[in-house]
Design a protein around this nucleic acid. Structure first.
Length: 542
RNA sequence: GCGCCCGUAGCUCAGCGGAUCAGAGUAUUGGCCUCCGAAGCCAAGGGUCGUGGGUUCGAAUCCCGCCGGGCGCGCCA
């Protein structure tokens, strides 16, 4: 494996800095990719950052540092075409073409875009976690898209990922569900005298009641039936969305296995609780929460805070040292208290555990108007609605085309557009186009292609873009930002379409043709890898 | 009232712990198929990066105030 020239250069610059200014040796040496191609392939601004502290002219400092760095990096000219000091003191470096083209060969090897780690981290991603009280809504869809993509990205980075779904099947809302179904089974409607307070009014309750054929008085049986019914229905939607979970964790098991009581005891034993107004409180303010939280209400029951903490204790005990919870931003309030609860237990859990990705709300637009209800659920738009309207690929791609904390407007009409301006097709089309080229020719022997025949600026740019892929994946994992994969794929597709229109792939010159085919194969591989990370198909024909 | 997030072209949004004339898609306008797929390409117009200060050699990016929007602040789940 040849060392990455960029990393090698950074090392050399660090060494030069340490020699010339030991007191500032800790300054990080970073590179930026200039917007203008005339400014080289990457630029370093270290001289500008340090000039003032060293009381030196930035351009002279840049020159001195670079010369010293190159003296310690004799192979520089093998990878680099040169450098220049530009503007106020930037150092712009230019790579030799073969360095950029090397990415093509890497992309054609198995496992492109996937890193291997000596010690894979055990990561858990918890997402969707919808209560089994109704169909999944668009927010769950966003969580499913984000969570599944993030899981795939972390796996690509070499971690071992468990996708987990937590079912709140033990609370008052389940009782509410059972009562609603029972009421419907008795022919009661929302608004009637006997309709339960806060009952679920959606049409799906009628379906459940109709399907249930047990005794109407047996509330327990109704509860089990309804939960089972809705879980199955949610599973169908998730399967259609292409999302699979490794573990379904039931809140009720926390009670059944005594884990809730165990946490309460441990909290009391920690000495961080106190009695007030007949309730038991935990001093979460000692760990960054803005107010203390009730653990046990004055009526003797526990607040939901307790099973939440108990659940996260099991995550830690099951060996997950990194846990990412994907939730709507309306769960913001729980983050501080869950973390505080874990800290109070003093289990050695780091203060920032677990990580949260909170996403903002999704608004659905159709025909220029906001859609707020669905037939089945009544009060909200369901994931099924989205899938029926736009299909899995478009829904997945759209839900990952914004960063999580940005507001989201889902334009159904755009996602439905099959022939025009739909961004999903833009990327998929690029993949299908490459495939169609290979349908017309032999694709054997690409590993022996002489890449030096690729001298066109578009080809170098495309090769360089392909080379960025592993870094993009790594950053998406680090920043927990799967949307950057989507944006990368759009850029890659744009570069390819542009190239494809400007140059012919299947030229008569065999050496050039083979080199271009190798480039195309690398594009195809990178598009397919990236699309699979976000759960979107890579069709060979459209 | 307090906390967190958001405010970038008509619209939907990128912009990694700062960088050398602000980006993409879409919409609008004008070009490109006897030639590997035109679900594509090329080009043009369009923005005081909410606003006022501050720090800096340099601010969409960092800090403070203000305006506008979202979410959260229960012995509810």
């Amino acid at each position: 494996m040849t060392p990455d020239p960029k990393a090698r250069l950074a090392d050399a610059l660090r060494a030069a800095l340490a020699a010339q200014a030991p007191e500032l040796a800790g300054t990080p040496v970073t590179f930026e990719k200039p917007r203008q191609p005339e400014h080289g392939d990457f630029a370093c601004s270290i001289a500008l950052q340090l000039a003032k502290q060293l009381k030196r002219n930035p351009r002279q400092l840049a020159e001195a540092l670079t010369e010293a760095a190159l003296a310690g990096y004799p192979e520089f000219t093998q990878s680099f075409a040169g450098y220049e000091i530009a503007g106020p003191g930037f150092i712009n470096f230019r790579l030799r073409p073969q360095v950029k083209l090397a990415a093509i060969r890497l992309a054609l090897e198995p496992g492109w875009g996937r890193a291997r780690k000596e010690k894979p981290a055990c990561v858990q991603v918890e997402f969707v976690s919808a209560n089994p009280t109704g169909p999944l809504h668009v927010g769950h869809g966003r969580q499913a898209a984000i969570g599944d993509a993030l899981s795939a990205i972390l796996e690509a980075c070499g971690d071992k990922v468990t996708r987990e779904f937590y079912y709140n099947d033990a609370g008052a809302q389940i009782q509410n569900l059972a009562l609603s179904v029972q009421a419907r089974a008795r022919g009661t409607k929302p608004g009637d005298q006997d309709w339960p307070q806060d009952g679920y009014a959606g049409e799906y309750i009628v379906d459940i009641a109709r399907t249930y054929n047990g005794a109407v008085e047996d509330l327990d049986a109704i509860r089990r039936f309804a939960v089972d019914y809705l879980r199955k229905e949610q599973d169908i939607d998730l399967r259609e969305f292409g999302v699979k979970f490794d573990v379904y964790y039931l809140e009720s098991s926390l009670y059944a296995e005594g884990k809730v009581v165990e946490v309460v005891k441990a909290l009391i034993a920690s000495g961080k609780t106190y009695e007030k107004d007949g309730a038991l409180w935990l001093r979460t303010t000692a760990y960054g929460d803005d107010k203390d939280r009730v653990v046990r209400k004055s009526d003797g029951t526990y607040t939901y805070f307790v099973p939440d903490v108990a659940y996260h204790v099991t995550k830690w005990r099951r060996g997950f040292r990194k846990v990412i919870n994907i939730q709507g931003s309306d769960h913001f309030g729980t983050t501080a208290r869950v973390r505080a609860g874990l800290q109070a237990l003093d289990l050695g859990v780091p203060p920032g555990y677990p990580d949260y990705v909170l996403h903002s709300m999704v608004r659905v637009m159709r025909g220029g108007e906001e859609v707020k209800i669905s037939k089945r659920a009544g009060s909200y738009v369901t994931l099924r609605d989205l899938l029926d309207w736009a299909g899995r690929d478009a829904v997945r791609f759209f839900l990952l085309s914004r960063k999580a904390d940005a507001d989201f407007v889902f334009d159904i009409d755009l996602a439905r557009a099959q022939t025009e301006e739909n961004p999903v097709y833009y990327v998929q089309y690029a993949h299908a186009r490459v495939c169609s080229v290979f349908a017309k020719t032999e694709s054997a022997g690409l590993e022996r292609a002489e890449l030096a025949h690729l001298t066109n600026p578009r080809e170098l740019e495309l090769a360089q873009r392909i080379g960025e892929f592993p870094g993009v994946v790594a950053e998406a994992a680090r920043e927990l930002s799967p949307h950057s994969i989507t944006f990368y794929l759009r850029s890659l597709a744009a570069d390819f379409h542009s190239y494809y229109n400007a140059e012919r792939i299947l030229v008569d010159d065999e050496a050039l043709r083979t080199a271009r085919l190798a480039l195309c194969a690398a594009v195809r591989q990178t598009l397919a890898s990236g699309l699979s990370l976000i759960g979107v198909s890579a069709p060979e024909k459209m």
